[in-house]
Amino acid sequence: MPIIKTEALTHIYSMGSPFESVALENVNIEISQGEFVGLIGHTGSGKSTFVQHLNGLLLPTSGRVLLDGTDINSSKKFRHDARFKVGLVFQYPEYQLFEDTVYRDISFGPRNMKLPKPEIDERVHEAAGFVGVPETLFDKSPLELSGGQKRRVAIAGVIAMRPDILVLDEPTAGLDPEGCESILKNISDYRRTTGATVILVSHSMEDIAKIADRLIVFDGGRTVMDACPEKVFSQADKLRSIGLDVPVATDIAARLRELGVSVPECCYTVEQLRNAVLSLKKGAAEC
């Protein structure tokens, strides 16, 4: 059974007003326990609206969201619980920090879950560990931290709820290359250690290419592709036609094939392309 599933999910903003707009239209997605899914699409494609349905923040205009087989909007209590089972990290999450210490901010979610104190403490330490927030920062005000550290604290605040599904909306936006890389590594490690399902929303193809196992592409409120990265990136023209980039490695590989170098279609990271070129040099092409 999929851990989360949407059935004919449709969302229309400002229904009945002149500003009415269809944000999602008949979206059917199934995600299994432990998957690492990347959601891509340009701004306004519906991906952010979609993820806000997964924890019940938005109500479907029609259709259902099933969490572990139960409609999350079937009861008020279930919708409330869904908030903790599906941890949602918004874009620029550092803007939501509000407590006077880092420790208290990370513990906000667990406290709302009404957990006993020792467990809250354990979770705060664990979550901080996952995202690389050292304990020496616990008593500091979040406002004193650097941009990158704030981002980590905010992500820890969601991880501390130990969600079954962790959803991150553009977690690397605005960070420098080193910051991006280390946050992505933290997320990968978190997933490996806990076995949690991770959904990463991004418009950075390079980031997504590196870590996701499955890509879902949104355009105009619909899912237009749902496949493994190799398959998705091999349709470079289609991606470009809906305003998305393809990883640079895909472009180089395509040009190489035009030049008569038979690198396989499934190369979409620099690492894979390097391996393909090296094996061509040795005489055997593989991916």
């Binding site: 080193e178 390079e206 990883p247 640079v248 490695a249 180089i252 390097r274």
Partner: peptide, 11 residues
């Protein structure tokens, strides 16, 4: 220096 290079240069 904590910077990356364009993917072409990296490859």
């Amino acid at each position: 220096e904590g910077l990356t290079v364009p993917d072409t240069a990296e490859l």
